[in-house]
Design a protein around this nucleic acid. Sequence first.
DNA 1: GCGGTTCCTGGAATCGGTTCCAGCGCGCCC
DNA 2: GGGCGCGCTGGAACCGATTCCAGGAACCGC
Lengths: 331, 331
Amino acid sequence: MTVTIRDVARLAGVSASSVCRALATPDKVRAATRDRVQQAAAQLGYHPNRVARGLSTGRTGNLGLVVPDIANPFFSGVVKAVQNRAHECDFSVLPADTDEDVATEIELIHTLTKQVDGFLLCAPRAGDEDLRSVSGDIPVVMLNRRVGRIPSVIFDNADGVRQVITHLVALRHRRIAYVAGPKTSWVNHERARALRTLTASMGLELVEAGNVSPTYVGGVAVADVLLAASVTAVIAYNDMIALGLISQITARGVRVPQDISVVGFDDIPTADLVNPPLTTVSQPKERFGRTAVDLLVDVLGDRERPGSSRRAAPMQLVVRKTTAPNPKEFS
Amino acid sequence: MTVTIRDVARLAGVSASSVCRALATPDKVRAATRDRVQQAAAQLGYHPNRVARGLSTGRTGNLGLVVPDIANPFFSGVVKAVQNRAHECDFSVLPADTDEDVATEIELIHTLTKQVDGFLLCAPRAGDEDLRSVSGDIPVVMLNRRVGRIPSVIFDNADGVRQVITHLVALRHRRIAYVAGPKTSWVNHERARALRTLTASMGLELVEAGNVSPTYVGGVAVADVLLAASVTAVIAYNDMIALGLISQITARGVRVPQDISVVGFDDIPTADLVNPPLTTVSQPKERFGRTAVDLLVDVLGDRERPGSSRRAAPMQLVVRKTTAPNPKEFS
DNA sequence: GCGGTTCCTGGAATCGGTTCCAGCGCGCCC
DNA sequence: GGGCGCGCTGGAACCGATTCCAGGAACCGC
């Protein structure tokens, strides 16, 4: 039925051990043997059984990837990127969706532990203690979150914020609002902190609004507050908030971008389909996922001191049509 | 380090075989033995190694799920639904993204074959012959595609089309266009076929345009053709085409929905964020994924005659703001 | 009391690769 | 020519759980 290493051995006229060596470490057998084995393997269509290999080596060749919501375009982009890079490193990826639920997350991690060599935990919802405990059992790399000395990859939010401010300042904006997202979001804090230090150092006025839910209705809800604050530019925690905001601002008779500029974060697929297309900060997921896989592979291969590695991925401002020069400067 | 069945056996003072029986088939051992083993297992925190079990039983407890593009909201929704249901049936899901590439698809299936008990192939891009061959090696359920007698789950496209036509007829539309998607798409053919028979039987005029690429620019490209055809309603192969179409129609000074009604398929997340929100046919993925898992589990449990099972999932018209009464009927 | 069940248990084989170890053959050097 | 060492190979043990098989104990009926 299924073709095993012994079938190949028989056909090639060698022992199973030689077949194993010929395929895994070709330089440890004579060239003639290697060729005979490889030909026999090809002829029979032999693929080593990964389960069996995993049992004897203790390595599965799988990486676990845990995300809160795979239907969220950001996370599904990360999944794609991780799969691509992992494939290049001869690893398979087992992505798992926790539905934003802490209990599911922990349970899933335990279920998968025996089937993977290490975990990539993307924006995990579990508490620091739980994560530290997981990290004690099995190699872990954390994405978009930082807990103690667990290796992590995060976006360079400070740089993203700097790009936005540079853009807005070039357009002569001086009074700028930030619509904060969920209080519990680590990323939200990062962005707010970066904004505060940067605006302060540049002598800009920063108006902080929120916190609102990171959704379309969250953006709608905060619109009037912003109009009352007489800012000329708004930076939203994410694109969904920005879209809700724009919709409500427009409904109030205020024009985007002529009267007020809006910038989002994430670059969701909808961002360039709306009218006007949204200026936003993209988080290049390809690079992010690749960096994370490389870090985990390094950790697995003992090429990293555990507990000290942090890597960052760049963010990128995408200028579309919701930002324009400050009208007050030109009136 | 890791706790094995022998550790439990030693602590409980029995053999490994008894431990195995006590945990897997509790009614096959004496009650006293069972209790001792269970207590020992709990005390050591023993979890059977799924890899080792897989090797000896030939069953992995995993289902493979192959999709063309996990970043596509339709597919990521299916992944979520499948994971939820599989979990209830004590299966894990290994989702894999083929990047729309046939070679990757085949290769992935081969890589995963040894790690899963069966496959769910969602809208596979491979040819019929390849799929038949896979289906000969391992249980397969096909989603949104039909090949020979391979068990499959598909959306009831004929019913979805019927809902759209019923809606448009109620609005007095009689001359309706269909913008066809890719020639190679099985679903596209299904929808076109259903439209032809239905419009014919109801005495409606059907204008067929396309085929266009199933994207925003595809929709932009076909707009002028539709305006020239003087139809009052357009059914697009999918939402992306519909959005491109609406954008270009509007740019030409024709109003949606007052002058022309537009309906899409898929109900992508963007559909209700655009202006006006898009009337479209939603494909309830929860039900779809659940049905698929149930079918595969039945096949694995030999509760299905192989090669004869087809199941269908319902579609659902979501009426938003891009459809309105036929203006010519009321002028 | 003895043959025949039934129930429960432990030992051993097995799944498919990997890897350690011993041995063989050959070449090289003294 | 003998001894040493190196390169290559096959046999066997092993990873951890499952399952077949055989045997012991208890129990039944005659």
